[in-house]
Design a protein around this nucleic acid. Structure first.
Lengths: 343, 343
DNA sequence: GGTTGGCACTCTCGCCGTCCGAGTGCCAAT
DNA sequence: ATTGGCACTCGGACGGCGAGAGTGCCAACC
């Protein structure tokens, strides 16, 4: 009983099951794959695969379906990411080219990914803490309040209202603001905000005492924006695809939808992949630490301008998914988004 | 057979059905409401109501359920919006107070509305075309490209990259930009962008020929931002509540989820209400023009700082929903968001 | 030893007839 | 107009049955 053939059988089972979503029996396998052996032999192999925990039978007289471990072996050893056709590549590229701003890029990306994979797509906004500062702007808005606007090279624009104690809608105030603008932009421009934190802290010290407090408030606001939960954002599309899954999802799609609404969870899952260095990550069924998503698989990867990863994206689907195609789509979309962002 | 009692019967049917989600028969009605008449009388009334098309029987020997028309009568004539308890009001207020920026306000609002109503909440971002301009900022970003940032009094920040033909990252360029900033802000500041369009158009004419082209590009970008589809945005929460509905939704939740992903559709539905002048709008079942949502009801209203409506919000749920409570929640949330935005 | 055909066995699923109960519609009486 | 009574209808649950798919095992074969 060759190890090699056993794995071929596993691959055939995964492929058939993904396509038909019905347990596959020894006979059905022979019809669709010419393995060159008889049904009895396949049965023996299947028994062995079941022994190893790679496949399982829902009940005695049904075919087998892959287990999470079975899919894992399939993904790691039995499949290769299937490249996208040039036509698809062009379609991706041209769709994303048309975006007018970052929101639009993210929106188009997530919809594109959902429609390519016919699954739920998840796209994270470029992380503030990993983006460089393009510009800091200060806009006085009635009374002692100041609007601080932070623009990053990835196109994100964050705003925060700070109370600076004094009314700046005056000629004097305007002069103060001009100084502050220059100083703050000099301290942060072109750098990752986190790296600029010591320069940023020294800015107030260099200024006139009268202005110092205002400046401190602004600096605090900038630093806060990195810490807050809202620093990271994530966008979904294609949730309707969950309903197409048919007899999938052990119970129903309820828990999955709930988990997807927990953006914090999604961010953590996308985040870990970004740290892994840009390769595709596949999380299958129970490999997922979050209960609500344990009947699903995630395929994720990082993206970003150049080699710096600034965020993650991916899809969530049934464990019974077409991994090669999905992985190809995720990778291709990440590549193109990165290219657009680099622009 | 008094008209009055018949309506009381209808009300009782709606209330029971909303609570139990099972067809209600004449006997069950008597147990739960003391109508002071016998089952036979109720049956007669029910027959009459069915004749009028306000209720229907799923099959011969089952109880009755309200039709869309029945709910309509219930909402218009038989129910009153039930006020929220002071404790709830405080909870709403304090949750929304904590928001740090517009994104945060919208995010909190939509989640709050979803959890209050246990339905799908929909919140529109303040419409650009109905907000006043707080500030226009111009940031040169390498090469001939200029980032135009538009900040509105409702807190929205829109950005657009325009190609102005000449490199502005020079001392000369900076002077040009300073002039432009002053002119543009003078022309638009504090006004609704749409109203400022003639002033805006005249700005380039007043300037030096050299600067005129740059200015025209910027003005065009500003005006474009009003037209584009992205001008309006909408955010969802609580889609998982669709699964809780149980035996609802004629077929399944698939079409509903699909319709909810069509933000354009949602915007149109929210938009029409905003024009109606601030009262609550209820759209029941087939009253809804979009096929995917015809098994649902929507309760929507407008909100905005002061008396100007700048956007809409609401919920989408099964036609079998608790209208009085839902309407109360939608109205209360709209009130509080408006208050926060006025700040 | 691995492979194969044969065979008995096991379960699920769909089908069908039966039964039960909820709920109705109608009618005659008040 | 309201009421109690009564026959009737229909959907859903229950249970038995048969078909079919698929298995595991075994003895034979290369």
């Amino acid at each position: 009983m060759s190890e090699d053939r056993r794995l071929r059988v596993l691959r055939a089972i995964v492929q058939d099951y993904v396509q038909t979503s019905e347990p596959v029996g020894s006979k059905a396998l022979l019809d669709r794959h010419h393995l060159g052996v008889s049904a009895a032999t396949v049965r023996n192999d299947m028994a062995a695969l079941e022994e190893e925990g790679l496949i399982a039978a829902p009940h005695t007289s049904a075919g087998r379906i892959p287990t999470d471990a079975g899919y894992r072996v399939f993904v790691d050893r039995l499949s290769q990411v299937k490249p996208m056709s040039p036509a698809e590549q062009r379609a991706i590229g041209s769709l994303l080219e048309g975006a007018v701003d970052l929101d639009d890029v993210v929106d188009r990306t997530v919809r594109l990914l959902a429609s390519l994979t016919r699954q739920v797509a998840v796209v994270q906004y470029p992380s503030l803490s990993r983006s460089s500062v393009r510009h800091v702007e200060l806009v006085p808005i009635g009374g002692p309040r100041l609007l601080v606007v932070l623009i990053t090279t990835t196109g994100r624009v964050e705003q925060r209202v700070v109370d600076v104690g004094t009314d700046l809608l005056t000629p004097d105030g305007e002069a103060t603001l001009a100084t502050l603008r220059t100083e703050l932009n000099a301290a942060t421009g072109g750098r990752v905000l986190a790296d600029a934190s010591s320069e940023l802290a020294s800015v107030p010290e260099r200024l006139d005492p009268g202005v110092r407090d205002v400046c401190r408030a602004v600096v605090t606001a900038l630093e806060d924006s990195l810490v807050e939960e809202r620093e990271e954002r994530v966008v979904l599309a294609g949730t309707a695809n969950l309903t197409r899954a048919g007899a999938d999802f052990t119970q129903s799609i309820g828990p999955v939808l709930e988990a997807l609404e927990e953006h914090v969870v999604l961010l953590r899952l996308l985040g870990t992949v970004a740290e892994q260095g840009g390769t595709l990550a596949v999380r299958i069924g129970h490999e997922n630490p979050y209960a609500g998503l344990q009947s699903t698989s995630m395929v994720t990867t990082g993206y970003g301008a150049g080699s710096d990863l600034v965020a993650g994206l991916g899809v969530v689907g049934p464990t019974r998914m077409d991994y090669p195609s999905t992985m190809a789509a995720v990778r291709a979309v990440a590549t193109y988004v990165s290219r657009i962002l680099a622009d």
